[in-house]
């Protein structure tokens, strides 16, 4: 069952614009049912950490005729929606990050949409739609080669 509005209000209790963050979260998890809100410690570059909410899970990305469930994590700062979310692709142990224009080696996602973020024109639904398009052209993760592919069977 989905997280309720009152649960989200509690989770986001320390957020400066709690109700805006709650409403957006509700519309995201209604539309992308494989994303869920999770509270966790986010560690900033300067080593400080803060308890923040992320939307963690997968988004459906269509690539070359197949749909893949690409694992992502969108961190909402406590100033959301007046600052963009911090976004990562989260490869599983069987995946490897494909670095490129939009993803670095840590999985951090870079997009003009994030760079030019401005509330209320920008929102999470719009961001996820952009990700689905961009990742459909250039996936941020690929499956790791299997052992058998890396080491072909020995030919007697």
């Amino acid at each position: 069952m989905a997280v309720s509005e009152s649960q989200l209000k509690k989770m986001l209790g320390k957020y400066k614009y709690r109700d805006l963050s709650v409403q957006e979260t509700i519309s995201v998890i209604a539309q992308y049912k494989d994303l869920k809100p999770v509270m966790d410690g986010y560690v900033f570059n300067d080593g400080s950490s803060r308890e923040l909410m992320s939307l963690t899970g997968t988004i459906p990305v269509s690539y070359r005729g197949n749909t893949y469930n690409i694992p992502i994590c969108l961190w909402l700062l406590d100033t959301y929606p007046f600052n963009p979310p911090i976004c990562f692709v989260k490869p599983t142990s069987t995946m490897t990050i494909k670095t490129g224009k939009h993803v670095d080696a840590n999985g951090k996602i870079y997009l003009p949409y994030l760079h030019e973020w401005k509330h209320p024109q920008s929102d999470l639904i719009g961001l996820i739609q952009v990700m689905i398009v961009v990742f459909g052209e250039e996936p941020p993760v690929f499956s790791r080669p299997t052992i058998s592919a890396a080491y072909p069977p020995y030919q007697a």
């Binding site: 049912k33 494989d34 899970g57 997968t58 893949y68 469930n69 996936p139 690929f142």
Partner: peptide, 14 residues
């Protein structure tokens, strides 16, 4: 709780 879709990725490319 969400069923939790298994993450998938395109096959490795060469």
């Amino acid at each position: 709780l969400n069923g939790g879709t298994i993450p998938t990725a395109p096959p490795s490319y060469t």
